[in-house]
């Protein structure tokens, strides 16, 4: 199962630029294609496609979302157990761990590269204790 780029593609390369796994190929102003083997179904390509050319594995068109409406992860450190599952789940390497609580030497996750975050929500889905919630960037 993978995302698909239809013939509506204008070859703007927006999807290719954001794809965290390099699964999209295609030259500028030419039809782009998604590699089934490399696609991880994060949906970032659809969120940036101005032509509405990206469909999800169920055949539905993925709508473009303005960047300011993209969600980003927020971490509830009271629930967080510092296991790092969310950090490893992030396909964009946008998360890292660091000391954050006074007198607590355990390193907790935080969004270290906000510009890299695509709002895919993999971190929130992976967290076993639901310590990660997704909210809009400016929320």
């Amino acid at each position: 199962m993978a995302f698909f780029i239809s013939s509506d593609c204008t070859g703007c390369t927006a999807c290719k630029s954001i794809c965290p796994t390099g699964a999209i190929s295609g030259e500028k102003k030419q039809q782009h294609a998604v590699s089934d083997a490399a696609c991880i179904d994060c949906g970032a390509c659809g969120h940036v496609c101005p032509a509405g050319a990206v469909t999800n594995p169920f055949g539905r068109t993925v709508p473009k979302i303005p960047k300011k409406q993209w969600v980003r992860p927020f971490f509830n450190l009271d629930l967080c157990m510092a296991c790092g599952i969310c950090v490893e789940a992030c396909p964009a390497n946008a998360l890292d761990i660091a000391l954050q609580k006074v007198k607590d030497l355990h390193p907790y996750p935080f969004l270290v590269q906000e510009a890299h975050c695509m709002g895919c929500g993999f971190c929130a889905r992976a967290c076993p204790v639901d310590a990660v919630t997704l909210k809009e960037r400016n929320a």
Binding site: C83, I85, L105, H106, P107
Partner: peptide, 17 residues
């Protein structure tokens, strides 16, 4: 002498440092 704890992947314990 510990400056921070160290957790392996998916470990809620953090016995390392």
């Amino acid at each position: 002498k510990e400056t921070r704890k160290y957790h392996c992947y998916s470990c809620p314990l953090g016995c390392g440092g």
